[in-house]
Simulated scan of single mutants.
Amino acid sequence: MKIKLCLLLAVGLGTSCSGTHSNNTDTLTTSGNHKDTALANAADAPPVNMQYCFYHTDGTQAQDTTSVNMLINGDKVTGKMSWLPKEKDARKGTITGTLKGNAIKAVWTFMQEGTKDTLGVEFQLRGNALAQKPYQYDAKTGRQQTNIQADYSVIYSMKNCSN
């Protein structure tokens, strides 16, 4: 156990991210044969009172960027989230939510094309990465929403919060 802790500490100190942390996770197979990461116990929960910053790129040439900068204070999560597509209107706003274990449920309040809107988002902290459940289009409302049946398949990389 001491060797594992020292190794995790060394990896954590070796990164330049101000939100760097380490935690032990176990991969569990859940119904539907997809893998999900769950914390082994409460002692493995992410550090609180800490800032975390992540980014994700997608598009045909990785030209669209989403960034999530969050502060975890106890079980409260606040921060900023921006979706910056190359040739479309951006979504920029704030996130407010709660942390339970390593799962975050939040509301993203953003501006797009001069209109204020909200969207529920679900994340999961995974070591030096952030995973998000993808969105789906709801034909009844004509809006995007989080696909709560999906796995956390959108993966963000940790970055230095000073950038």
Rank of each mutant, 00 (worst) to 15 (best):
M111W: 09
Q112C: 13
L125S: 05
V121E: 00
A90Y: 15
E113P: 00
K133E: 00
L99P: 12
A103L: 11
V121P: 12
E113Y: 05
G114W: 03
K100V: 14
A129N: 09
N102Y: 02
G93S: 09
D138T: 06
D117Q: 15
L125G: 00
D138E: 15
L130F: 06
T96W: 01
N102G: 07
T118D: 01
A139W: 06
D89S: 13
G97A: 08
F110R: 02
K133W: 00
E122A: 12
W108K: 10
L84W: 01
D89K: 03
G97N: 01
Q124K: 14
E122V: 08
F110D: 04
T118S: 05
L99Y: 13
V107T: 15
N128R: 10
K86G: 01
T98P: 03
T98Y: 08
A129I: 11
K88H: 07
G127S: 08
K133M: 01
V121F: 05
A131V: 12
T115L: 15
V107Y: 09
G101F: 03
Y135T: 08
A129W: 00
R91Y: 12
V107H: 08
D117V: 06
L84M: 15
P134Q: 08
T118Y: 02
Q124W: 01
T96V: 15
Y137E: 00
Q132H: 02
T94Q: 05
T96E: 10
Y135N: 08
E87F: 06
Y137C: 00
E122T: 11
R126N: 06
Q132K: 03
K92G: 06
Y135F: 15
T115W: 05
F110K: 04
K116C: 05
K133L: 00
Y135W: 13
Q112G: 13
V107F: 05
K92A: 05
Q124G: 07
K88F: 03
K86S: 12
K100W: 00
A129E: 11
T115F: 03
A131C: 14
T96I: 11
L130N: 02
Q112P: 05
R126T: 08
D117M: 07
N102R: 03
I104L: 07
E122K: 11
D138A: 15
V107C: 04
A129C: 01
T115C: 04
F123W: 10
G93W: 05
Q124S: 14
G127D: 05
A90H: 14
G114K: 03
L99F: 11
A103V: 10
L125M: 12
K88R: 08
Y135H: 06
G120L: 07
I104F: 02
F123R: 11
L99G: 04
S82V: 08
G101V: 11
P85E: 04
V121Q: 01
T96R: 12
